[in-house]
Design a protein around this nucleic acid. Structure first.
Lengths: 209, 209
DNA sequence: CAGATAAATGGACCACAGTCCGGTAAACCC
DNA sequence: GGGTTTACCGGACTGTGGTCCATTTATCTG
């Protein structure tokens, strides 16, 4: 139904073989323009026409490079996203390896909450695509794999894939921003609740490391 | 930016005072046409122009009655939605009152899973609006109130509002349909996982009723 | 029934995401 | 440097959700 079912590599950067010089130049220009506009007017109010115009580039070029609006937004998030993934895969404890799985999971959620706090509207714009697209994307797959692995490490005996979806569901930007802005829940309170949730679901760290 | 910030009344059915006869007639006609088109082509492929045309009505009328595309889809779901709410508020146990809170919660989730199984694409279309709109809507508020009340009854001592959001997050149609269709998880398996999740989170039913 | 009033109507109109394709210019080979 | 190929470019174009407002029509009042 999709056609490119085996494309599970890096999100969308680093051209496969060789990018023509003008293409590379345009990509940079577009990203710079988009960043400027998003910073000025917010992600929700930034249109593709504006970006194309500000970058001095045709609309086709824009869509050629980023596929669709969400793709462009994701590209803007990409650098920060990469550093986040780097941190929880190879960074220092408790987010990275070294701490007990349960602690790592708590740190993961707290870091995600910060991420949402900072990049809120951009994340909203990036995830608000066709239904399910968000879940099919490699970024979700990476989060899911990480959480699943931590749950396995922690000795949880239920369906770890399902639980990963549930946990990630409580860190969805739409929900978190609703809790923060509409319900008025503080960032600290959300961290506390997340910690409590994980501690309730995941057993005590029986083995020390 | 929107202009009608104070329009926050009842969901969108049952005219407040008195609906003019032609309006009532048109509403019925529109719903019938929409239902037919959705049944024929699916909710995702049904456009507002098609509905307006099939109902022999102007586009303005359509938007006047239902606000936006999601509003129309919600209206199509409304009857079933009402009976669902009726069942868990005043129906028979274990979904309705009479059973222990934990059992009611499990039954609630199972019923929601069925609901998604049957109305999947329509739910998807109804919830796929502006970011956070879904959460602000009264349907979500009703679910949240119900789950929160059950958690309170069950003697859960943490933040019941937060936990309600988490639990409802795992019953979001987008996620459930992804699990069913993309991950290939069976309905039965989802029910099992939901039950296990609730049993893990909510303590044993200490008081009998 | 006639006039007044407010609500409902419909389709032209707008904004925006996304597509298409004739034209253009890198990059590569000789 | 000249010729060829091929990826890239740009902007006109389309489809869809949503708005606007002059006109019509149901309802109410006398």
């Amino acid at each position: 139904m999709h056609g490119d079912g085996d494309r599970l590599e890096l999100p969308m950067l680093a051209p496969l073989r060789h990018e023509r010089s003008d293409a590379a130049r345009n990509r940079t220009t577009i990203l710079a323009a988009a960043e400027r506009l998003v910073a000025a007017d917010g992600a929700a109010a930034t249109t593709m026409d504006q970006v194309a115009c500000a970058a001095g580039v045709g609309k086709g070029t824009l869509f050629r490079h980023f596929g669709d609006r969400c793709g462009l937004m994701r590209a803007l998030l990409d650098e920060r996203e990469r550093s986040f993934q780097e941190d929880f895969i190879r960074g220092s404890a408790p987010l990275g390896p070294g701490a007990p799985a349960r602690e790592r999971l708590i740190a993961f959620g707290e870091r995600m909450l910060e991420h949402i706090e900072i990049q809120g509207d951009l994340l909203l714009a990036a995830e608000n695509g066709a239904p399910g697209e968000r879940l099919r994307h490699s970024v979700y797959a990476a989060y899911r794999a990480h959480v699943t692995a931590l749950l396995a490490d922690s000795g949880y005996d239920g369906d770890i894939g399902y639980l990963a979806d549930v946990l990630l569901g409580s860190l969805v930007s739409e929900l978190v921003l609703f809790q923060r802005r509409e319900l008025g829940i503080s960032q600290a309170q959300l961290r506390r609740c997340w910690g409590e949730l994980v501690r309730t679901l995941v057993a005590d760290p029986a083995p020390v490391v």
